[in-house]
Simulated assay, not measured.
Amino acid sequence: MSTRTWFITGVTSGLGREIAAQLLERGDRVAGTGRNTDALHEIAATYGDAFWPAELDVTDTDAVRTTIDRAAAELGRLDVVVNNAGYGMFGAAEEFTDAQIAHHLATNLTGSITVARAALPHLRANHGGRIVQISTYGGQAAGPGGSLYSAGKFGIEGFMEALAAEVAPFGIGVTIIEPGGTATGFRRNAVLSTPMTAYDGTPAAMVRGLPASTRPSPGDPVKVAAAIIAATEAEPAPLRIVLGSDAYQYTCQALTERLAGIADQRDSAAAVDITD
């Protein structure tokens, strides 16, 4: 495949950095953003002009639009946009402050929406391209202690699923990536709520030990990144890609239980229809 130009948020660590590194090693160009300027400079020093760095907080709507427009202008085009910036936030819903919730959703939900919307004019001008949304199996399977995290991921998956149908006429594909646990430091960097004693011993309290957990993550970030890159080369664009045996297990279980929960409601659902 010919050289492509990528715009990736959150390239300074974790999965975003691994994706960027693999792309740069194979000769693609990457416009990479993040809040850690030292890490951005480090990547730029390694890969030179193939890497276009920009400090960016995706909660800053104006900055997102300006940065994407500038990247497209200076690099000539954008072919693939990867929404990777985000973070985990775990605890009982009642334990978080309003400010924590607002920032989390501004990053994980509306930040990704803003990036996609800002990129669309450039992709339409190219008569094609891809938008890749890094989600999680938590965007399909919600559990106690993950209510706010899943709120953002369920929301962005709904947005991207609808967006895929909206932009298909322009030759733009949308793919949602649903990884399982991956050895990227995600758990270590997760934000936890301030515990309330009322939730001691409840299912929601199980996430309190997440950052210090020594349980190994099954996902290999090198393989996950390679699979994400490969997904952007598939035609037509796959709507969802599940990565990791744990992600597959929990997603299938959640979808099966969801369908089972409404399977016997056909008659009761129809009972409220308007009849002559």
Results as ranks from 00 to 15, higher is better:
T9G: 04
I176H: 01
F170R: 06
R70N: 14
L75C: 10
T182M: 02
G27P: 03
I113P: 01
T197M: 11
G201E: 10
L24T: 06
G129E: 01
A230D: 15
S13E: 15
G138S: 13
I8W: 06
E166V: 05
V64K: 07
G244A: 12
I131T: 04
V207Q: 00
V58H: 05
S13Q: 15
E257G: 11
I176L: 08
Q100R: 01
D69T: 15
E42N: 11
E18G: 12
L24E: 13
S217V: 14
L56Y: 05
A119L: 02
G146E: 07
R187K: 12
S268E: 03
A106N: 14
G155R: 02
D38Q: 06
Q265A: 15
T232V: 01
L40T: 02
R17C: 07
L123S: 03
A73M: 12
T194S: 09
Y250F: 15
V81S: 04
M89H: 14
T197F: 04
L259R: 14
P236E: 04
T251W: 14
I176T: 07
A93Y: 15
A93G: 10
T110G: 08
T202P: 04
T182P: 00
D98K: 14
A44N: 08
T61P: 07
A102V: 15
E166K: 01
I228T: 08
L120M: 04
T275H: 11
A71D: 05
T66R: 15
H122F: 00
G129W: 00
T256V: 12
L148P: 14
T182G: 05
A225P: 10
Y87H: 15
L163F: 04
T5M: 07
T33S: 04
E55S: 13
R26Q: 09
R258K: 14
T61L: 12
I8Y: 06
N83F: 08
A142Q: 09
I134F: 00
L259A: 13
L123R: 00
D57Q: 10
S2D: 13
D267G: 00
T184P: 01
V132Q: 02
A20Y: 04
Q249I: 14
V207D: 11
P203E: 03
L259Q: 13
I68E: 01
G128K: 05
G145D: 02
F154N: 00
I172E: 09
G76W: 08
G48C: 03
D98L: 15
R117Y: 07
A99C: 06
Y87L: 10
E157R: 06
D273Q: 12
A247F: 15
A99K: 12
W6S: 00
D273P: 09
F96V: 01
T110S: 12
G145Y: 00
D220H: 03
T232C: 08
T256E: 06
H41S: 11
H103C: 09
A142E: 14
A231M: 07
A230I: 09
L255V: 15
L255S: 09
R26N: 11
G86A: 11
H41C: 10
G139Y: 03
H41N: 05
L239M: 10
S13G: 09
P218N: 05
A269H: 07
I177L: 08
T232K: 00
A164N: 02
A151N: 12
F96P: 03
G143F: 07
A212L: 09
G16T: 14
Y199Q: 06
T12P: 13
G91N: 03
G76V: 11
A237T: 08
G261N: 12
H104C: 14
R187W: 13
